[in-house]
């Protein structure tokens, strides 16, 4: 295949009434537009305190999550919206009504926006097709998690700005380390960072690497399984959560095999570029992908990421549910 088959054409900047499903759909200008809007009210969002009053935002989570759901709900409440919280395990939905009926039912309650998290890829795309209100993707399987990508962009810009550096991503190098093959965070963040000009390097065990033909489309400039040789050259390193069930199967023999070569522990910290910072979307497995020492150190931007969760999601909600910021 010579032509990149998986290219999605960017639609436009995010507007009133739109869905927000992937980074690819908004493209570079749409991404910059949301990020700059979020930055315009970071620290003081009081002027939007009633921007969404009278609206109802529903979080429909078919998969466990703490921070994503809480930060979406907090974001909506800080904008004056009502919040309807819906959580159902995949198995009970399977038994009962169809996924489509569930989505249509929630819409029929008079909800203004659906925030969907699902273990199945494309779930929010399906819902967006079935309902007439904006749908926001809060994570679909290993596919996309676009608001997490906004958080990572905001966190990196903040880190650069606070050190008096240029907030352009041209020339910066970001590593994404872990089970990239099975990570929606890696997919969305790599795309967002590369759209803004960063060089994104995937670092993963060989069997945790995406198909070679898709690497460029996903936003990675290269892939390596040699973490140690990359440590010195990185400006930022995003660690991915390692799911326990992935640590003992045909692709990875044991947790020790992973820790030996890919965990940010012990001597690897010393070899990291002194100017580099560490990020992690959470929840962390301390002692697996990251040492406690590093997680709690000054090199960690992990809590900054958490705090950017709210403005990032406020920006998206304001864009799709109001004329503010359009």
């Amino acid at each position: 295949m010579t032509e990149k088959v998986a290219q999605v054409t960017a639609r436009d900047v995010l507007k009133f009434g739109d869905d927000f499903l992937t980074i690819d759909e908004v493209g570079r200008s749409g991404l910059e537009d949301i990020v700059e809007f979020a930055e315009s009210f970071v620290g003081d969002s009081s002027k939007y305190a009633s921007a969404l009053s009278g609206k109802i935002v529903a979080t429909m989570f078919f998969e466990g999550s703490t921070r994503t759901r809480l930060s979406f709900e907090l974001a909506a409440k800080q904008l004056g919206s009502n919040v309807l919280s819906f959580f159902e395990s995949t198995s009970s939905v399977k038994k009962g009504e169809s996924f489509k009926d569930t989505a249509k039912t929630v819409e029929a309650f008079g909800v203004d926006c659906l925030i969907v998290r699902h273990a199945s890829i494309g779930a929010s795309h399906q819902v967006a097709r079935w309902v007439n209100i904006p749908v926001i993707n809060a994570g679909d399987g290993c596919h996309a998690h676009p608001t997490q990508a906004l958080i990572d962009v905001l966190t990196i810009r903040d880190s650069l700005r606070s050190r008096g550096k240029d907030i352009s991503f041209e020339g910066i190098k970001v590593g994404i380390l872990g089970d990239v093959r099975n990570s929606r965070v890696a997919r969305s963040s790599a795309k967002a960072l590369s759209l803004l000009g960063a060089q994104v390097v995937g670092i993963a065990p060989a069997l945790w690497t995406p198909d070679k033909r898709s690497i460029e489309t996903l936003g990675f400039s290269s892939f390596t399984s040699d973490l140690d040789s990359e440590l010195e050259g990185l400006d930022f390193l995003i660690l991915l959560r390692i799911q326990n069930e992935r640590l003992q199967n045909k692709r990875m023999q044991s947790i020790n095999e992973y820790i030996k070569n890919f965990s940010m522990t012990g001597s690897r910290l010393d070899r990291l570029n002194p100017e580099a910072f560490i990020m992690h979307p959470g929840p962390m497995n301390r002692g697996v992908e990251i040492s406690s020492q590093l997680a709690d150190s000054k090199k960690s931007l992990i809590l900054n990421q958490v705090s950017y969760g709210i403005p990032a999601r406020m920006a998206v909600l304001l864009k799709v549910l109001s004329e503010v910021g359009n």
Binding site: N182, R184, P210, S214
Partner: peptide
Amino acid sequence: KYFVNEGEVSSYLGMS
């Protein structure tokens, strides 16, 4: 259980 060809498109979408 995604009934999709393992390759460029599946990898782009995160599907096994």
